[in-house]
Every structure is written in structure tokens, then in C-alpha cells.
């Protein structure tokens, strides 16, 4: 369905496809038949008013919702041809492939270096020198290296909020995922640090498929290639970001992006 929206030159591979995805918190249904295709190596923004199911939708992609017994997903999420909701899919392997960054930065209570090395060591058998190299390249990838190279042994908790969030991104990309899920990654961070993270995401686009949930519509329009608008658990409109923000097809979308509600 997305292909039709794109210019013929752009042949995009679909990385994630949600099909008839519904979600329940106990008896309460939060998502209704979501269908969404997310192209590879692009940034897809997920917008919508509070409580519309954006984060809920995102949290299905790495099955993090399974931590809570009463939460349940129905339908399919196909990543690289495999329905990851299938019981046979190994969730630890899935989560290496599909990294997630949360709203509040959550550095681990250890040094900056170990924060990045920890997850990497879980997944890869590496020699010491390789670990050091990869930590550096992950920190460079997260545009944090220059700021922390002299305090790698200092606590990750001692960094500023924006640095902590980039540390979390470094930690995630060190596990070499294909996909980055970001759940309002800048809502707890000051505007200057937010811009840094946005630039970072644009630079990461070449390597990863990025899905970002955001409350901030300027952010969505600044960095994303595609935008999906959620309302009351349904996907109202999904299109190129330019189209959504200049000429939305749906009235609800238009009302939301012009700030009439939300």
C-alpha cells in the first residue's frame, strides 16, 4: 500500500509490517486492527494525542509488553518475513535485532564504558580489544564520544539528561540491531539536547530502520520520512511526512496537526 505513494525511483523494502494488530490491557482493547508498513532505512514517526495507542503499538514490536501478564496482542507483526508474535520466535534474539529507547533515559548503574559494553557482551563473544573498539564506535555513532572519552570510567548516572539518552542509544546500537524503536525519546530532555538527538537520528537512518513515537509534531516533520497518525487505537492516516503535514487526506489528521485538539 505504501509503494503507491512513492515515486517510482524509490523502491523501498518493507522492514516491519503490522497486520490486523489489536492489543488488550486485560479486558480493555487499546488497539484496533492496526495495519502499518514501515520501510527499511527510513524514519517513521508515530503521532497522535495522548492515550491513542502510539506507545502501545511500538511496544509490540519487541514484545516488551509480555513483561505484564494481563497484556495481550492479536494479529501479526512481520519483521523480515517472520511473524515475531509467533511463540517460536526467540524473544532475546528479537530484542537484539529490535532495539528500544525509552522516554526517560535509563543508564545502568555502572560506568559509561560498561553501559555500552554490557549488552554487547551478552550477544557477542569478543576479545577485550574488540570490545573497546566497538564501545568507541557505538559512542561515536551516538555522537557522544567526544564528550565522554575522558570519563569512560565515570558513572553513566553522572552525565546530563541528553548525554544519558545518547548513552542509551549507544548502548542499543552496540548490540547491532536492525531496527530502533524510540518511545518519545526527547520528551524529558531540554531543547538543545533534543536537537542533538534529532541530528543523531538523521545520521543513523542510513544504518537502521527507525520508528519514533513523538508528541512533538515539529519533531515529526523535521526528521521523519513517513508519519502515521493514531487516534483512539486506530491508524487514521499513514503517508509521507510531507503529505501528512501539508495536505492530509483525513479531517481528523488535519485537525490534529493544526493543533485543534490533542
Amino acid at each position: 500500500m505504501l509503494e503507491t505513494l512513492l515515486s517510482p525511483k524509490e523502491k523501498l523494502k518493507i522492514k516491519i509490517a503490522a497486520r490486523n494488530l489489536s492489543f488488550f490491557y486485560g479486558d480493555h482493547q487499546a488497539l484496533f486492527d492496526n495495519n502499518l508498513e514501515i520501510p527499511e532505512n527510513r524514519i517513521t514517526a508515530v503521532i497522535g494525542p495522548s492515550g491513542c495507542g502510539k506507545s502501545t503499538h511500538l511496544r509490540i514490536y519487541n514484545r516488551i509488553f509480555e513483561l505484564y501478564r494481563e497484556q495481550r496482542a492479536e494479529g501479526e507483526v512481520v519483521i523480515d518475513g517472520v511473524n515475531i508474535l509467533d511463540r517460536n520466535v526467540d524473544v532475546l534474539e528479537l530484542r537484539r535485532k529490535v532495539g528500544m529507547i525509552f522516554q526517560r533515559p535509563t543508564p545502568f548503574p555502572m560506568s559509561v564504558f560498561d553501559n555500552v559494553a554490557y549488552g554487547m557482551r551478552l550477544h557477542f563473544k569478543l576479545r577485550k580489544s574488540e570490545i573497546a573498539e566497538r564501545v568507541e564506535s557505538a559512542l561515536r555513532g551516538a555522537s557522544l564520544w567526544e564528550e565522554v572519552k575522558d570519563k569512560l570510567n565515570g558513572s553513566g548516572l553522572a552525565l546530563s539528561g541528553g548525554q544519558q539518552q545518547r548513552l542509551c542509544i549507544a548502548r542499543t546500537i552496540a548490540a547491532e540491531p536492525d531496527i530502533l524503536l524510540l518511545d518519545e525519546p526527547t520528551s524529558a530532555i531540554d531543547p538543545v539536547a533534543t536537537l542533538k538527538i534529532e541530528e543523531l537520528l538523521l545520521s543513523l537512518r542510513k544504518r537502521f530502520t527507525i520508528v519514533i513515537v513523538t508528541h512533538n509534531m515539529q519533531q515529526a516533520s523535521r526528521i521523519s520520512d513517513f508519519t502515521a497518525f493514531f487516534y483512539k487505537g486506530r491508524i487514521v492516516e499513514h503517508d509521507t511526512t510531507t503529505k501528512i503535514f501539508t495536505n492530509p487526506s483525513n479531517k481528523k489528521t488535519e485537525e490534529y496537526i493544526t493543533g485543534r485538539f490533542g
Binding site: 532475546l92 549488552g119 542499543t172
Partner: peptide, 8 residues
């Protein structure tokens, strides 16, 4: 959650 999301 964030440590689980890393594959722990």
C-alpha cells in the same frame, strides 16, 4: 524494561 529491551 530497558535492560530487557537489550535482550537480557
Amino acid at each position: 524494561e530497558s535492560s530487557l529491551a537489550l535482550g537480557m
